[in-house]
Lab assay of single mutants.
Amino acid sequence: MDGTRTSLDIEEYSDTEVQKNQVLTLEEWQDKWVNGKTAFHQEQGHQLLKKHLDTFLKGKSGLRVFFPLCGKAVEMKWFADRGHSVVGVEISELGIQEFFTEQNLSYSEEPITEIPGTKVFKSSSGNISLYCCSIFDLPRTNIGKFDMIWDRGALVAINPGDRKCYADTMFSLLGKKFQYLLCVLSYDPTKHPGPPFYVPHAEIERLFGKICNIRCLEKVDAFEERHKSWGIDCLFEKLYLLTEK
Rank of each mutant, 00 (worst) to 15 (best):
M1E: 14
M1T: 12
M1L: 14
G3K: 05
G3R: 09
T4A: 14
R5L: 11
R5C: 14
T6N: 14
T6R: 06
S7C: 14
L8I: 15
I10T: 15
E11I: 14
E11R: 10
E11W: 11
D15G: 08
D15T: 13
T16M: 14
V18T: 10
Q19G: 02
N21K: 13
N21G: 09
Q22D: 15
Q22Y: 07
V23A: 13
V23H: 10
V23K: 07
V23Y: 13
T25G: 07
T25L: 06
L26G: 06
L26A: 07
L26C: 13
L26R: 07
L26M: 06
E27Q: 09
E28I: 05
W29R: 04
W29T: 06
G36E: 13
K37S: 11
T38V: 05
A39S: 12
A39F: 13
F40W: 12
H41Q: 05
Q42I: 15
Q42M: 14
E43K: 08
Q44L: 07
Q44S: 12
G45R: 05
G45V: 11
L48P: 02
L49C: 04
L49W: 06
L49M: 13
L49D: 03
K50L: 01
K50W: 07
K51D: 01
K51P: 08
H52T: 10
H52L: 15
L53G: 07
L53C: 06
L53W: 12
L53V: 09
D54A: 09
D54M: 02
L57T: 05
K58T: 14
G59R: 08
G59Q: 12
K60V: 12
K60H: 13
S61Q: 05
S61E: 15
G62Q: 08
G62C: 06
L63G: 11
L63K: 11
L63R: 09
L63F: 11
L63M: 06
R64D: 04
V65L: 04
F66G: 01
P68E: 00
L69T: 06
L69W: 02
C70G: 05
C70H: 02
G71K: 03
A73G: 07
M76I: 07
K77R: 10
W78V: 11
W78D: 08
F79R: 00
A80I: 02
A80S: 11
D81E: 12
D81T: 10
H84G: 01
S85E: 13
S85M: 11
S85A: 12
V86L: 01
V87E: 02
G88Y: 04
E90D: 12
I91G: 07
I91T: 06
I91K: 09
S92W: 03
S92M: 08
E93W: 06
L94E: 13
E98N: 15
F99D: 00
Q103M: 10
Y107H: 04
Y107T: 01
Y107S: 03
S108P: 00
E109Q: 09
E109A: 14
E110P: 01
E110T: 12
P111E: 13
T113V: 09
T113M: 14
I115G: 09
P116R: 08
P116W: 05
P116T: 07
T118S: 14
K119Q: 06
V120D: 01
F121K: 02
K122T: 13
K122F: 07
K122G: 03
K122W: 04
S123G: 10
N127S: 15
N127Y: 12
I128S: 01
S129L: 07
L130M: 09
C132G: 08
C132A: 13
C133D: 00
I135Y: 14
F136L: 09
F136M: 04
F136W: 11
D137V: 06
D137R: 05
T141I: 08
T141Y: 04
T141W: 08
N142D: 10
N142G: 09
N142F: 08
N142A: 12
I143F: 15
I143P: 06
I143A: 01
G144R: 06
G144M: 12
K145P: 08
K145Y: 14
F146E: 00
F146T: 01
D147R: 02
I149R: 00
I149V: 08
I149C: 11
W150Y: 11
W150A: 03
D151W: 00
R152V: 13
G153I: 02
L155S: 00
A157N: 09
A157I: 03
A157G: 08
A157Y: 05
I158P: 00
I158Q: 06
N159A: 04
N159I: 02
P160E: 05
G161L: 09
D162R: 08
R163M: 08
K164P: 14
K164Q: 15
K164A: 14
C165K: 04
A167K: 04
A167S: 09
M170Q: 02
F171H: 15
L174T: 05
L174S: 06
L174Y: 06
G175I: 04
K176A: 12
K176F: 08
K176I: 09
K177Y: 09
F178L: 03
F178S: 09
Q179P: 00
Y180M: 09
Y180K: 00
L181F: 13
L182P: 11
V184T: 15
S186G: 06
S186V: 07
Y187Q: 02
D188E: 08
D188C: 10
D188Y: 05
D188G: 05
D188A: 06
P189M: 10
P189Q: 10
P189S: 10
T190R: 14
T190F: 15
T190I: 13
K191V: 08
H192W: 14
H192P: 02
P193H: 14
G194Y: 13
G194E: 08
P196Q: 02
F197A: 09
F197V: 02
F197P: 08
Y198C: 05
Y198M: 14
V199L: 14
E203Y: 15
E205D: 14
E205A: 13
E205M: 05
R206P: 03
L207I: 09
F208S: 00
F208Y: 09
G209A: 13
G209C: 05
K210G: 06
K210Y: 15
I211G: 13
I211T: 01
C212W: 04
C212A: 15
N213P: 01
I214W: 06
C216D: 05
C216M: 15
L217F: 07
K219Y: 08
V220R: 06
V220G: 09
D221P: 10
F223K: 02
F223M: 08
F223P: 03
F223E: 02
F223D: 14
E224I: 10
E225L: 15
E225M: 03
R226F: 11
H227Y: 13
H227V: 13
K228W: 10
S229V: 07
W230V: 04
W230H: 03
I232K: 03
I232E: 04
C234V: 15
L235S: 11
E237Q: 13
E237W: 01
E237T: 00
K238N: 15
L239W: 06
L239N: 04
Y240L: 12
Y240K: 01
L242N: 00
T243Q: 10
T243D: 15
K245R: 08
K245M: 10
